[in-house]
Design a protein around this nucleic acid. Structure first.
Lengths: 332, 332
DNA sequence: TTGTAAGCGTTATCAG
DNA sequence: CTGATAACGCTTACAA
């Protein structure tokens, strides 16, 4: 691989000048610039990014911490983040927090600082200690969606309460009289809003409250259904706190030969692409995953490159109801 | 962040000595080594990996090229690869070849050489030109599974022919008399073995051949079913060249109110975790995804660190039949 | 066993 | 507008 020296030599100038054209420094005579660009092409020269990073103390890389490998929501999210980063000239360093030893997150954070990572996006739920470690350093951080309990990390999330209301109103519009709710884990901050909406709507309409807790997985959804249908034969709709559990719900209902949506309608939450994999396809409340990824990168890069402060407040994006056959009787 | 200089100063030795203990060089007095380790802990020192990379011309990073973001098979694969790499002290640089402009792969390859990437794993199908570019450099490369048409890239794959035979024998053992095959795209090398097995088995047993081509997606599987069932009312089993299409097949069959497996049994291929998402769950031929990932990393690292040549031959791993309810009548 | 110093490929300061 | 050169943090002959 040719280096900046080779280019300098062949072009008959100093490395400083080469560096200048590399960095679009205007103080280069047009003639020399052209000459140099030509030589670069001839030599098929690419600037060495490692050397650049060392010199600049900046890597144009953003670290992304995501939790479970089995939740497609995070894959889709990471894909959008990578795309947005790519467009701004940044790479993404993916780190799966799930399944690794407790200390390894600490280790990873150390690595960050030894690689000149420019910023961090956190989609995982970290323990308090790790969070503190992150905050202590001055690296720009942004949390997305479900995540982070510390108050002083800027967060981009979704309107969980309003989104859940969309789901419930839809079910009620479809004439459902008894709605069961499959909640996420109690500590999980983002499911709280969804839970509150459920309680509020049920309360206002004087409807029975039936809540079961699940672990956000397909199996969790199945188990929740067994629990819910064990005693409540009158339920005619299910609202699940995420799509994976809703898919599990559909699976369990089909197994019990319960007709969807005729006997029980199902609504999910997230809008992952898997929500179309079942038969019937799942009605769901879609998060603007692309937008979350885009915003996270934008906020971070704006700060890194232009010092634009990231608002410490929580920024909550609206959600969208997508109606499919798990709530809509076909042909209607 | 403290540097090697800070450590040297505080420990009262030269940076060379620090570097020696960092690299486990035995020519350090035990006493000094201990002293230095102590100072490192005190200062909370972490060696700067960028500087190390620049000096060593080696980054301990392996690039992984994966295609479609929507195929969970590759996600699972990449997860195992990351895990294996992690255990050997390597990071993985993920690059999605799908959806990016044609030139960007070329651009990416350039980046590789400017970041001292130590090796490449290719899971994507690249065009000939890109492949040539890769081969021309002396970077160690390994292709996995479905991939790569060039003959001179070492490849780790699976026994497609034998795996497909497992599926077909199973269906025949279950008493099926007419098996339809949903193939992958014709050019797709890995589906060829599966196709040949189908032809051979059908031929040997004098059974009717019914092949439809799909694009390896869920929708592709659905369309294939519409095609297959349009004319062949006597089919009682489907073998799909991958799980995603098999899932689509199940979806389409359910939509047509055809009972699985009573009327039509379905077998997939890959063994992705999504194969358990349907009701009934999918019988499938599982690839040893973990093993593929492990081997790819092992071969690469063995070469990088100890010069162990990677066998140029294709290395094909055995597959496993997993029987679930899409072929087995419940209670049996 | 330890230290000195050159080198890895850039960037940036300071002169000219 | 251009060139020398120190600096980024580490490794590694070569000397001592």
């Amino acid at each position: 691989m040719p280096t900046i020296k080779d280019v300098a030599q062949k072009a008959g100038v100093s490395v400083a000048t080469i560096s200048r054209v590399l960095n679009n420094n205007p103080h280069v005579r047009e003639e020399t610039r052209i000459k140099i660009l030509e030589v670069m092409r001839e030599l098929n020269y690419t600037p060495n990014s490692i050397a650049r990073t060392l010199s600049n103390q900046k890597s144009n890389t953003i670290a992304l911490l995501i939790p479970d490998i089995n939740n497609p929501f995070f894959y889709e999210l990471s894909s959008y983040i990578e795309q947005s980063a790519y467009e701004k000239g940044y790479s993404v360093l993916l780190y799966h927090t799930h399944g690794k030893k407790k200390d390894s997150i600490k280790q990873f954070l150390k690595t960050l600082y030894s690689s000149y990572i420019d910023g961090i996006i956190i989609a995982s739920n970290l323990d308090k200690e790790s969070e503190k470690l992150i905050i202590r350093k001055k690296l720009p951080v942004i949390a997305i969606d479900r995540a982070v309990t510390a108050k002083n990390i800027p967060t981009i999330g979704v309107q969980n309460y309003n989104g859940a209301k969309l789901a419930l109103d839809h079910l009620i519009n479809m004439g459902r009289k008894s709605i069961g709710f499959i909640s996420g884990p109690r500590q999980w901050s983002t499911t709280n809003g969804r839970y509150r909406a459920y309680k509020d709507v049920m309360g206002k309409l004087n409807m029975e409250v039936n809540v079961v807790y699940g672990d956000l997985s397909v199996n969790g959804g199945m188990e929740a259904i067994y629990e819910l249908t064990k005693n409540n034969y009158n339920i005619d709709a299910i609202f699940a706190a995420n799509d994976l559990m809703a898919i599990g719900a559909i699976k369990a209902l089909i197994k019990q030969k319960i007709k969807i949506p005729e006997e029980i309608a199902v609504v999910g939450f997230d809008g992952i692409s898997l929500s179309r994999i079942t038969e019937p396809e799942l009605t769901t409340i879609a998060q603007p995953i692309d937008r979350i990824g885009y915003l996270a990168i934008k906020r971070l890069v704006d700060f890194i490159e232009r010092g634009v402060e990231i608002p410490i407040i929580q920024e909550d994006l609206p959600m969208e109801l997508i109606i499919r056959n798990s709530t809509r009787i076909e042909g209607h």
